[in-house]
Design a protein around this nucleic acid. Structure first.
Lengths: 256, 256
DNA sequence: AACAATTAATTGTCAGACAAATCAAGGCGG
DNA sequence: CCGCCTTGATTTGTCTGACAATTAATTGTT
């Protein structure tokens, strides 16, 4: 199929070409699994050299918009973007955003629980036995003695992911699971005492119970309690760190 | 600074190199605004040719992880990822996801309003006069006669964006504004009659009023009503389209 | 007809070169 | 002494041409 590409007059050639092809994909002029012309043909069409075309294709490949195969009937093909592909991408981006913009824990935490709260009514209405089973399993794991903080956090993420998935809306799962997982590095900074683990465990159990009973209001309340407790824990960590800094270094740190 | 890169043994060279550098950035071994070695040096370090290094760098540039400048003190620099950068990227991805996975309108709509609902309590507590002013302005524009459906949708997006921003949480804004804007193409398929516009306008006004009064519960209720009405409109469109198809083509379509 | 070898097409990688942009330093004039 | 211009060095952007690796279709052989 002959596809028209519209070049913009901005930036480097490979950027322009990547943009033109991307626009063609987004606008539907190139459809899923359609094969792009070979690099040589593209180079001729755009009147550039093959390396330039290649750089443009690599840009698109990095965004999962195309895949390439070599060989006789190889070439570049338009990708069907799947939720799970976009997922990993979003986690990387979100993680970097959180770390580089130095979002404070409270803000990230607030966002996370606000988003999860959005899922609760749907989850209460639609949760299946498998979702509940996953939650119970993670709760059980979180109760195991000798679990490392990191494993505890990972299990925590799995629990919340099950909650989000229980809402039965793939768009929500995609958006949210990214946000939840991106927060894990921040959560990992918290060291969980036995007492705080017990408390979290109890709240997780209460949330699972409420969802099992399809009681959205109670689930929201328990989730809110969990959010508050998490922030409380983070405050403790911050306070303790500051105390240590003052005791050790004399001048108090900036808190950053 | 000397940075170690860890290559994985999977896939093409440029993929491996891009992955190694990306890992170094994510892990913090390369910090923001740090300059990477020149392409020639990287080529030597990784023992590949310069074009291969370039393809790897283009992959990273496509993800906004690095920026490049030419010239004497130019080179590739680690980007500080800003929310607005990630934003555009997320909109493209979300738009493609929605169109290519053929998410039905109801699912997308449900997700959107669930997410917005998560913002309401925060927005009620924190909305400033500027957020209210933006909302009022968009409501006013939506009331203008002769406004095209597309402009109406755009204004709708702006209104909801103000709502999200009123929550005063950049993480929420980033996550949500992407979801809301990605839905616009789907929303554009609806043609708004004068009557439905008036109804939507009224609901927008009610939401703004509730936020002005810092009444989260009422705002949530009005938002729920808006969600229900939007889905109702979409159902109408679907029903009318099916009726037309049956009248014209004989056999009813699959709905897809 | 089934299997193996060949061939063609395509991407992946390399080498070397030049153009374009950009900054730093030095020279020149005021 | 200060400011402007020129020059040079450095680095990315692009081109050319070539070869290697991979894959599918074709052809030949049994």
């Amino acid at each position: 199929m002959q596809v028209e590409y519209r070049l913009k007059e901005d930036g480097d050639l490979s950027v322009q070409i990547a943009g033109a092809i991307r626009d063609a994909i987004v606008a539907g002029r190139l459809i899923v699994d359609e094969r792009l012309p070979s690099e040589a043909e593209l180079a001729e069409q755009f009147d550039v050299s093959r390396p330039t075309v290649r750089e443009a294709l690599k840009r698109l490949a990095a965004q999962n918009l195309i895949r390439t195969r070599r060989g006789a009937s190889g070439g570049a093909f338009v990708n069907r973007l799947r939720f799970e592909d976009a997922h990993g991408q979003q986690i990387t981006t979100s993680t970097l955003l959180l770390s580089m913009n130095a979002v404070d824990f409270e803000t990230a935490c607030e966002a996370r629980y606000a988003l999860e709260r959005a899922c609760v009514p749907l989850a209460a209405a639609r949760r299946g036995p498998d979702h509940l089973a996953t939650m119970r399993a993670e709760i059980h794991r979180q109760g195991q003695p000798g679990l490392s903080d990191e494993s505890f956090c990972a299990s925590d993420v799995a629990f919340h992911r099950a909650l989000v998935d229980a809402a039965g809306n793939p768009v929500l799962s995609y958006q949210l699971a990214g946000a939840v997982e991106a927060m894990q590095p921040l959560m990992n900074m918290i060291t969980f005492s036995a007492r705080s683990r017990a408390r979290i465990l109890a709240l997780h159990g209460a949330i699972a119970d409420a969802l099992e009973a399809r009681d959205a209001a109670r689930a929201e309340a328990e989730l809110a309690a969990l959010a508050a407790y998490t922030i409380e824990l983070a405050d403790d960590v911050r306070a303790r760190r500051r105390a240590r800094a003052e005791a050790a270094g004399g001048a108090p740190g900036t808190g950053q």
